[in-house]
Amino acid sequence: MSRRVAGVGLIVLLAAAVAPVLPAYPLTLLTQAFIVAILAMSLDVLLGYTGLPSLGHAAYFGVAAYAVAILATERQAGFATCLVVGIVAAAVTAAAFGLIAIRAAGTYFLMITLALGMVVWGLAFRWVSLTKGDNGISGVPRPELGLPWSLWGPLPFFYFSLVTAVLAWVLMGLLVVSPFGMSLKGIRESESRMRILGYNVWLHKYLSFVISGTFAGLAGVLWAYYNGFVSPVDVQLVTSVETLLMVALGGPGTLAGPAVGAALIVFLKNFVSVYTKRWLLILGAVYIGVILFAPRGLAGAFRGQRH
């Protein structure tokens, strides 16, 4: 655990140190990596620590992103309003979906979260008067925080994203080592045993679901500001599955692993798409390769070698 904390600290310090000398493009990718890392870590709370594989995680991310985009463009709302409304919208969505989804287990849970995610995608795609449909909402302005640096600059926005991601990692890290987090792991390992021990398994799963969705909302808020543009692509099934891939690639149940997985996928996607139009073929092959050759993720692969 302490080695992992040291490792994360080292990576973060390194990123913070090299950022000022990086060219613009790698810097935006690094910013994107930190934002998406929050999303991947939020799913890890649910998948890695509670054992619930959600296929609809983009829904909470997207709800928050849309909330920010709509508020910031049409109402010219400030940062605090956007942040709070975005996160609350994600939490409320997760709280509503959780009521339906938590009743199911295993493959049923996958199917139900997939379908619930589609509800949000359907609204984003078709509720044109609110979401502008397929065109998406563009021109989301970067927030004014009253700091001496404007977040319109790539470097200040990078540090803003980095600090938020570290904060999210610390909060989620504290959550998973808390007694509550331990109970979640217990449920992951044996639900029936935890039930017999007197734990309210449903409530634990439900809270984990809502907390996970809430952090996905935080990532969504940042995403809307980062991209300046929100569209149904952000809430589609492929986005949810990509988040699952990041967690699987990094190693579920480690928080830091999925964050690294997120960074790898972000860089891979962007670099490969520079060199070839056939990057979907390569991404597809990555999915299959990860499952065949690193079924427990990179973290699992390294751990396997040590023992």
């Binding site: 493959t107 699952l244 092959a285 299959i288 499952i291």
Partner: peptide, 16 residues
């Protein structure tokens, strides 16, 4: 039996 692995593999094929 590996629910998550199967999902990721089928999406990999879908992308390809």
């Amino acid at each position: 039996g590996q629910v998550l692995g199967q999902v990721l593999m089928t999406i990999g094929f879908a992308l390809i």
